[in-house]
Simulated assay, not measured.
Amino acid sequence: MDFEQADALNQAIRLLSLRHRARAATLLAPLGLHPGQEALLLELARTGPMIQAQLSEALGCEPPSVTLMTRKLEAAGHIRRGPAPSDKRASVVELTDSGKALADQVKQLWCALAEETVTGLPAETVAELPGVLKTLTGNVDTRRPAPRTVAGTVQTGES
């Protein structure tokens, strides 16, 4: 890939990420939420109660970020934290009735944001996007070993 193509691709991804997050922030603000908190609520709505460490892994963010989000959501009455039965040092996080209602509102907002984001795209393209984006995310996942660079080429360790 030449620089112009690489630059166009990287700029498009960067701008989409920034603008999507800003739009999400605008839509979440009336619900009293900040970006990231909706993902935590939706994950708990999907899976049920989870230990904070598991929640951190599921959300792909650092444990201190999850701790901060859970404190704020707990103070607002949307989640509750308690000791894990198997490990008293760990906290189990679960939605309250208020949190379940808020998660339902977030689901509606999320549908609207997704529809807004893909407006004008053919249905076939929209259907393929989650898989394509998941692949792109996996390709740049910092939690996996970095590829080695040898003489200007990237070595993935695969044959």
Rank of each mutant, 00 (worst) to 15 (best):
K134C: 06
R81Q: 13
L129M: 04
D97C: 00
R143T: 15
C61N: 07
L95G: 01
L16M: 09
T153K: 12
A53G: 12
A8C: 05
L44Q: 08
P49R: 10
P49Q: 07
P30Q: 10
L121A: 03
M50P: 00
L16Y: 12
T135P: 01
L113G: 03
L28A: 03
K107V: 00
T26R: 15
C61F: 02
T67R: 09
A24G: 06
E57I: 12
S159R: 12
G82T: 02
E124S: 07
I13D: 05
H20T: 14
G32P: 11
A29S: 06
A76D: 07
L40A: 14
G131R: 12
K72M: 06
E115M: 05
M69Y: 04
L129Y: 00
D104V: 05
A127T: 10
D87Q: 09
L9I: 15
S56L: 05
P147I: 06
G77L: 04
L102G: 01
Q108D: 01
L68P: 01
D87M: 08
D141V: 15
T137M: 04
Q11C: 03
L31Y: 05
A146S: 10
L40V: 08
R21V: 15
I51W: 02
A8F: 11
A114C: 05
V92Q: 10
A103K: 09
G138N: 12
A75K: 10
A101C: 00
D141A: 15
V92F: 05
A103T: 12
G36A: 07
A75C: 00
S98F: 00
L129Q: 02
T142A: 15
N10V: 10
N10R: 14
Q105M: 03
L55F: 05
L129T: 01
A29Q: 13
E4C: 04
G36N: 09
T156V: 04
L31W: 02
L109C: 12
R81P: 03
E116H: 11
A25N: 10
E115L: 04
K134M: 08
D141Y: 15
K88A: 11
S17M: 09
E124I: 11
Q105I: 03
D97G: 05
R21L: 11
P83R: 14
R14L: 14
Q37H: 07
Q108F: 01
T96V: 07
K88E: 13
L27Y: 09
Q5K: 14
W110R: 06
A112E: 10
K72D: 01
A103D: 03
E43R: 15
T135V: 13
K107W: 01
A6L: 14
A39V: 11
Q108L: 13
E4F: 14
T153I: 12
V66S: 02
G152P: 11
